[in-house]
Design a protein around this nucleic acid. Structure first.
Length: 465
RNA sequence: GCUCCGAUAGUGUAGUCCGGCCAAUCAUAUUGCCCUCUCACGGCAAUGACCAGGGUUCGAAUCCCUGUCGGAGCACCA
């Protein structure tokens, strides 16, 4: 199988579907898959040199390594050879009609005057194309199909055209005669030995077009599955490489890994595992209709993956300071993980006042339980330590809330899909290493992106609740 | 205009090829209860679907026709 990306930028979430499915199938059935960069348009779909590696990194993040990597732009001579062969068996002709002229003839089911040129002329003109003797738009090579085919999309399609703009890759920058996707991909699939192709419904007619070439060469066409488009909920940004790219240019997004960008780099930075994405993508199946992927299904899998090994901490967003009274303990020691006492406890100095989230502020005379610390009653703007046992919580009268010390907490910037949130976390958080995962209790799972200290913000990326 | 393709709960999916075991599977979501010093994890329960209409048949989610809705192609893009 193959994954044939256009290297015009790092991958968005939707791109994960192809490697997820073919990679999973490969591993399950002892198969084979390659990545083949179909970079045959140096102009309108101009490749981004950095994207080749970025895509391979995205693939690695998802947990797959391709058996082989190809670049179509390395294989021009091969395509030329097969084009010559196709011309010799009368399967192609050079055509100098303008796009509109040909389109009109085609829609009327009429052949254009160039269709019956003799093979030698066609061959000579094609060699001139290869040599770069024509300007862009002057001459194309068409595959001779059936000009009266009932499906206009299949009639005498273009196999090669001239492009004046040099290819960004040094190795391919001299070529001016470039194959169209249907030709290049069709030839490559056969040569590489692809047995199964999955592609989008936008390429529904590709197999039928390429079948004409396969017939000329007497090749057998691989099995094909077409699948629909994937929509992902939860994002404001349109999921298209060019849109994301524009928004980065415009400064609306900080980069490809901005938490608001629907890219794999972004999910990775938020601490979502490739495995969770793959799992969700495989679950979508290969249906030909369009599907909506709920981010919640990726989150559900990821939560399952990380919950057990992720330590707990406190973060209070937009805290309100409340003084403490009644001589509470000087230090709180909640466990790092409720199910794993052996991992030890946290040491949170209490001080004389704490921060609580606005929604957690108790009403007058109400009692609350500061998690890991004890029971307090809200009296005259002060939380009075009551010293009551945990039983008051079990009885259901007292809510348990998270908190941080007002003084000894550390600043945190939490970057989320909806934007940045600031708050303060228990002191231990500043010492966590980048890349560690943490669950802020009653807030959600985050990945530490940059450690801070008492003054400098610890930056975390929010994964999910 | 021409040509293709699709339609099962909020979302995804199984079942459709070879009609009965489907008063329709599983996951996720939402809600409620239990557990719990987290609204996490775990447990239990509830919610919720075969696009419509005809036809074939003893019997249709499954086969056929029509309609409706949705998607895609008809590029010198991929």
């Amino acid at each position: 199988m193959r994954c044939a990306p256009n290297p015009n930028g790092p991958w968005h979430v939707g791109h994960a579907r192809m490697p997820a499915v073919i990679g999973t199938y490969r591993d399950r059935y002892d198969g084979w898959f390659c990545v083949r960069f179909d970079d045959t348009d140096p102009e309108t779909k101009r490749p981004d040199l950095e994207a080749y590696d970025a895509i391979l990194e995205d693939l690695e993040f998802l947990g797959f390594e391709p058996n082989e990597v190809f670049r179509a732009s390395d294989r021009l001579e091969t395509y030329y050879d097969y084009a010559r062969e196709l011309i010799e068996v009368g399967g192609a002709y050079t055509c100098s009609c303008t796009g509109e002229e040909f389109s009109e003839l085609k829609n009327a089911g009429e052949p254009c005057p160039h269709r019956d040129k003799d093979t030698d002329t066609v061959l000579a003109e094609f060699e001139d194309m290869v040599a770069g003797e024509y300007e862009s738009g002057e001459m194309v090579l068409r595959v001779k199909t059936d000009i009266e085919h009932k499906n206009p999309a299949l009639r005498d399609w273009v196999a090669f055209r001239m492009i004046d703009t040099p290819h960004p890759r040094e190795e391919a920058s001299e070529f001016r005669c470039w194959p169209m996707l249907d030709f290049q991909s069709g030839i490559d699939d056969h040569l590489i030995g692809i047995t199964h192709i999955i592609r989008g419904i936008d390429l529904q007619d590709s197999a039928k077009r390429q079948q004409f070439v396969y017939d000329y060469f007497d090749w057998e066409y691989p099995e094909v599955v077409h699948w629909g488009h994937v929509q992902i909920d939860a994002y404001d940004v349109k999921m298209s490489t060019s849109t994301i790219s524009e928004r980065i240019e415009a400064g609306e997004l900080d980069g490809w890994d901005d938490p608001r960008a629907p890219t794999l780099q972004s999910l990775r930075r938020r601490g979502i595992r490739g495995e969770a994405i793959v799992d969700a993508m495989v679950g979508l199946g290969t249906s030909t209709s369009d599907v909506d992927l709920a981010m919640s299904s990726i989150y559900a899998t990821n939560r399952e993956l990380i919950d057990d090994e992720t330590d707990r901490r406190f973060l209070v967003r937009d805290g309100n300071q409340v003084p403490l009274g009644g001589s509470p303990p000087a230090e709180a020691n909640p466990p790092l993980h409720p199910d794993h006492e052996d991992r030890g406890v946290r040491e949170i100095p209490v001080g004389d006042s704490v921060l609580l989230e606005p929604a957690d502020l108790p009403g007058r005379e109400e009692r609350i339980w500061l998690k890991g610390l004890g029971c307090f009653q809200f009296t005259r703007d002060t939380l009075q330590y009551t010293g009551e046992e945990i039983d008051v919580v079990r009885e259901g009268d007292v809510d348990v809330v998270h908190w941080v010390p007002a003084r000894e907490s550390v600043p945190v910037r939490m970057r989320t899909i909806e934007g940045d949130v600031t708050g303060r976390a228990e002191p231990g958080v500043a010492e966590l290493e980048a890349d560690e995962m943490v669950q802020f209790e009653r807030v959600g799972f985050v990945r530490i992106d940059r450690s801070g200290d008492e003054d400098e913000e610890t930056v975390v990326y929010y994964a999910h609740d």
